[in-house]
Amino acid sequence: MKQVEMVNGHLRFPTLLSGDGEPVILLHGFPDTHENWAVQMKLIADAGYTCLAPALRGYAPSCQPGNGDYSLHAAVDDLLVFANQLGGRVHLIGHDWGAAVGYLACARYPDTFCTFTALAIPPLKRLPQALLKVPEQIKLSGYMQFFQLPMAPEAWLKKDDFSGIDKLWQRWSPDWEPGLYLENAKHTLREPGVLPAALGWYRHLIRLWRKEQRETQEWLGMNITVPTQVLIGEQDGCMSPRLLDHTVNHGDFPGGLRVERVSGAGHFLHLERPETVADLLIAHLKRGECLA
Rank of each mutant, 00 (worst) to 15 (best):
G193N: 02
G193T: 02
V194R: 05
L195Y: 05
L195Q: 07
L195W: 01
L195H: 05
P196E: 03
P196Y: 05
P196L: 04
P196M: 06
A197P: 01
A197R: 09
A197Q: 10
A198K: 11
L199Q: 02
L199M: 12
L199F: 03
L199A: 08
G200L: 10
G200S: 14
G200E: 11
G200C: 13
G200R: 13
W201R: 06
W201Q: 05
W201F: 08
W201S: 07
W201G: 04
Y202K: 06
Y202E: 12
Y202M: 09
Y202S: 11
R203N: 13
R203W: 14
R203V: 12
H204R: 13
H204M: 13
H204T: 14
H204F: 15
L205G: 10
L205Q: 09
I206C: 12
I206L: 14
I206H: 14
R207Q: 15
R207G: 12
R207T: 10
L208C: 03
L208Q: 13
L208I: 09
L208R: 11
L208D: 15
L208S: 15
W209R: 11
R210C: 14
R210P: 15
R210M: 15
R210F: 12
K211L: 14
K211M: 10
K211S: 11
K211V: 07
K211Y: 12
K211E: 15
K211D: 14
K211R: 09
E212S: 14
E212L: 10
E212G: 14
Q213M: 14
Q213I: 12
Q213T: 15
Q213F: 08
Q213G: 08
Q213L: 07
R214Q: 11
E215I: 14
E215L: 13
E215Y: 09
T216Y: 03
T216N: 04
T216Q: 12
Q217C: 10
Q217M: 11
E218F: 14
E218A: 12
E218R: 08
E218S: 09
W219Y: 13
W219H: 07
L220W: 01
L220G: 02
L220C: 10
L220Y: 01
L220H: 04
L220E: 01
G221K: 03
G221Y: 04
G221D: 05
G221H: 02
M222A: 02
M222Y: 01
M222V: 00
M222T: 01
M222S: 04
N223I: 04
N223A: 06
N223W: 01
N223S: 07
N223Q: 07
I224S: 04
I224P: 01
I224N: 11
I224K: 07
I224T: 03
T225P: 02
T225C: 07
T225R: 08
T225W: 03
T225F: 06
T225A: 06
V226P: 03
V226Q: 03
P227K: 01
P227L: 00
P227E: 01
P227A: 01
T228R: 00
T228G: 04
